[in-house]
Design a protein around this nucleic acid. Sequence first.
RNA 1: UGGGGCGUAGCCAAGUGGUAAGGCAUCGGCCUUUGGAGCCGACAUUCGAAGGUUCGAAUCCCUCCGCCCCAGCCA
Length: 559
Amino acid sequence: MPDNNESTFPSNFIKKIIDDDLLTNKWGGRVNTRFPPEPNGYLHIGHAKSICLNFGLAKEYNGLCNLRFDDTNPSKEETEYVDSIMEDVRWLGFDWEDRLYYASDYFDQLYEYAVQLVKDGKAYVCDLSADEMRDTRGTLTEPGQNSPYRNRSVEENLDLFNRMKNGEFEEGTKTLRAKIDMSAGNLNMRDPVIYRILKVAHHRTGDKWCIYPMYDFTHCLSDSIERITHSICTLEFEDHRPLYDWFLDELGAYHPQQIEFARLNLSYTLMSKRKLLALVEEKIVSGWDDPRMPTICGLRRRGYTPESIRDFAERIGVAKKDSTVEFAFLEHCIREDLNKHALRVMGVLNPLKVVIDNYPDDLVEEIEAINNPEDLSMGTRKLPFSKVLYIEKDDFMVDPPKKYYRLAPRREVRLRYSYYIKCVDYVKDEKSGEITEVHCTYDPETKGGSSPDGRKVQGTIHWVSSKHAIDSEVRLYDHLFNAENPGEGDYKLYLNPDSLKTVNAKLEHSLKDAAPGSRWQFERVGYFCADNKDSQPGKPVFNRTVTLKDTWAKIVKKG
RNA sequence: UGGGGCGUAGCCAAGUGGUAAGGCAUCGGCCUUUGGAGCCGACAUUCGAAGGUUCGAAUCCCUCCGCCCCAGCCA
């Protein structure tokens, strides 16, 4: 049973397998998982699910989780990706300690294993071209044909394979293939390629090798070498399991159990590395860390916390059913986290000038505001209040509909933490019809936000003092795509033209020195994160992580 | 038409022969100096469908239907 069986973690079919293995002592009580990314792109939220699963199981069962780079294809892999992957796994809160491995570390052993297969008559060098191999593989419903090279002698195969390694043959002219069954219903068993010739330098082994092992051969043996117990991968590898098992059985090697689960799909976004790369390369987004990207670095820049992502990964569960989780659920997780931990501040995104007619011209008062009503230990701060303020344009209407309880002519509202104000007049730009200024009177008796006579006020709105506020660029992000499933069809047709709106906001002065990466709640508006790239000292730029839930917007929508 | 999987609410997901957890979303109500948060309540007579076994079936058996993955010298 898990160490931590306080039932805080929901169960899933993988835990059941592990519980069972522990009961039967299948692995001597060990649990050792691994997270095996290919360093050919940045990690995304789907990888986060896998990372949380693998490292999470290890933690829960007092086991280990290795980080292993699956770097068997030097033509697609780069050190830049290796670095970003390590940064992201660490940021998510996981530690592989001294167990950082690379499949390329095993190239020598893998070669020896391949030689053993050849010696056992289980693998052969094949001269078929890629096209010929495809033509002889058969189809989903018809068996393939044996390669004419299938019955070469062990000696000849050994010699040829050795010469492949020595670079005597050109790329594409020869492969080493497993001798299994060309009529197998499972295409993966139709004499799969084990080694191909690739005269490409590898990011770690340089030009030592010109033959590189394929995934199926590499992965099972890497797991075996590392004494992995449970090799967890996604559903599309289910068909590969017989091959995984075949290699290990034929070689008599230590044999972990491969277990497959359904990868994460998220509505309104894409998870395909290829498509994400295209968004970056075509400059549809600003980079892998664009706050609209579902990448870990994008989410980080957007303001997501590692805790919220781990919580999300835990709560979506693990199963074998293909599924698409609603984006709203991810948003719920970050709101829940930030609600408890983010400091409250006031910021006006669409400023409307308010003049308090009966307030002394040069007076500045200090108003005390609570930093987080959810956690009073976070203290209070002082806000300057003066005659001229900014409020949100949305918080004033000349002709308000029913249920609107913000500011309107002759109406009184509370300014958060300060005074009740009553609208006495407003200025309208005759050309545009826009309201440019609102005039109010304040009730000096209501300082702090309550009135001695006990009268109630319908709404509370946020504000900043005009002469104290800082001007700040604020980026309002929305889904990158309009479609729930942009992955089906041409995703570029579904790009949301409004996925990024930049506004010049008026923010309370305390935000001037907001640290890059710091997260805030702008009261009544949403959660924001000081951008860690574009913020300058004394001049922060903010990214909207997520809006606050907006009941009023819902009422408006319903009509 | 071959092989491998999967079908429990709008979205996730427990449940594995004893009478459908939980979360998100949604809808009501309470409360509120954030239309936030919080609190209370509603939300599957039924588990893809039809048969069968059983005192009893989402769970076992059969048949059917639907969806996903596989024909890279990618992972």
